[in-house]
């Protein structure tokens, strides 16, 4: 009887000890791994930016720029996640065919919207200022450009996460303005105006991107 009780009493203690060891290991992992991952995320953004700015530095046509931008988009952005986010609550009511078409149109739309917006950035150097974890999945890499003038520099935040093969960008935040949020908000308004029909947005995106139905 006594033996049994002591066994019962002892077991929780060992569980506590084991979990404490686990906690220590976890804490050590946090301390050691976090800076490494932060550096990794920072390096990823630095390399991506260098690649884009270098490509934009040579005088190119708008079409060339669109090509470069599309290439960067497909290799460094987690487009599936972004597409889903920007469709918001309408993702669930969209049919499989609509989702598929939306993804394709959304990518074309991004190229159209942003490929040439940054044409003045040719030769600009992006300065990565830090990175921190914002939730269990995502890093926010902070950076700035154009700090040479008297104006405050433009702040660019890159929301980065580990996805499959490597790191991928899920949002870009310029001076506090999130690209994903902006697109989600205007898409929601467009669908709402079309009576809650996703097809309404798809039609507008087809028209904008010049895609036949």
């Amino acid at each position: 009887m006594r033996k049994v009780r002591s066994a019962i009493v002892r077991r929780p203690a060992s569980v506590v000890r084991r979990s404490r060891t686990g906690l220590l290991v976890f804490a050590a992992w946090l301390v050691l791994a976090a800076p490494a991952a932060a550096t990794e995320a920072e390096t990823f953004i630095r390399e991506t930016a260098d690649r884009v700015f270098a490509a934009y530095a040579v005088p190119v046509t708008d079409e060339d720029r669109a090509g470069v931008f599309r290439d960067v988009l497909s290799t460094t952005f987690e487009l599936k996640t972004i597409a889903r986010f920007t469709l918001g609550r309408y993702w669930r009511v969209a049919s499989a065919a609509q989702r598929k078409e939306y993804r394709r149109l959304f990518e074309d739309f991004l190229v159209l919207a942003y490929a040439n917006r940054f044409r003045d950035l040719a030769g600009v150097k992006l300065r990565v200022t830090g990175a921190r974890m914002i939730n269990k999945r995502d890093w926010l890499v902070q950076s700035e450009i154009g700090a040479d003038g008297t104006r405050p520099p433009i702040r660019i935040g890159w929301r980065v996460r580990q996805a499959g093969a490597g790191l991928r960008i899920v949002d870009v935040i310029v001076d506090g303005i999130s690209m994903s949020v902006t697109q989600r908000d205007q898409f929601a308004a467009a669908i709402h105006a079309a009576g809650g029909k996703v097809e309404g947005l798809l039609a507008m995106l087809r028209e904008k991107t010049g895609t036949p139905e």
């Binding site: 986010f85 939730n135 949002d171 999130s178 949020v181």
Partner: peptide, 14 residues
């Protein structure tokens, strides 16, 4: 202030 978290919504993961 990016010291205060920018209001990033939760982006659903894969």
């Amino acid at each position: 202030a990016e010291a205060g978290l920018p209001p990033l919504p939760d982006i659903p993961g894969e």
